[in-house]
Amino acid sequence: MQTLLPLRLEDLCFEARGRGIIQGISLEFEAGSRTVILGPNGAGKSVLLRLCHGLLAPTSGRVVWNRSGAANGRHRQAMVFQRPVMLRRSALANIAYGLKLAGVGRSERQARAQRALEELGLAQLAGRFARVLSGGEQQRLALARAWALEPEVLFLDEPTANLDPAATREIEAAISRIGAAGTKIIMVTHDLGAAKRLADDIVFLHEGRVLERAGATRFFKGPASREAAAFLQGELI
């Protein structure tokens, strides 16, 4: 099968109520690395992620996948949201639901869902109802639901923003494992700690524009832009 990546953004713009949220972004995401989109609140990070995933349509510009008709291959991408949305059914059934929509046959669904739960350390919660799980467990379940789809690209929007440190560690460990298994990770965060722990390379976003694109080590050592430097200093920009 032809791979989805690289993903190319061509002069992408997005306006809402006359305000330019994303103002002319051109970028390319290669397979393999874990890319973190970093920036202060309101920089347009989440919107950019949704444009990439196809949840929003750009006002102008294009999102181009290597394989044409990638929208039909939606299940080759997956997304985990800041607040996990769980269906009123068991943890296992939540994962199986995603697989069903991806066209996975009934018999295979159960096995794959079970494997995904085990992978995220949730096997003992399989029969529990998803909505009564703790926030950390729900987010891990959301990750399991995404992982079960065996996506080529996994988008993550502030996946640990609402979690306590222990839950955050578990999620980040899982993201690392998924990345290591060959899935392209594209994660949005405004949390410097998370970015340092997970990023191979950084896209620094500010007021709807990409100010910097660099390897993580280089970026954290010496950012090129004044805004990125200020952000790293913990200033409010």
């Binding site: 995933h53 949840l55 299940h75 997956a78 949201f81 949305v85 269906l87 009123r88 639901y97 929509l101």
Partner: peptide, 23 residues
């Protein structure tokens, strides 16, 4: 609450409707 998640999972409108009714 569900829209983005369901669309992300690739639910067609009818499917999404049925899922919402059940939920």
């Amino acid at each position: 609450e569900y829209e983005e998640q369901l669309r992300s999972l690739g639910a067609a409108p009818v499917q999404a409707g049925l899922t919402l009714v059940w939920d």
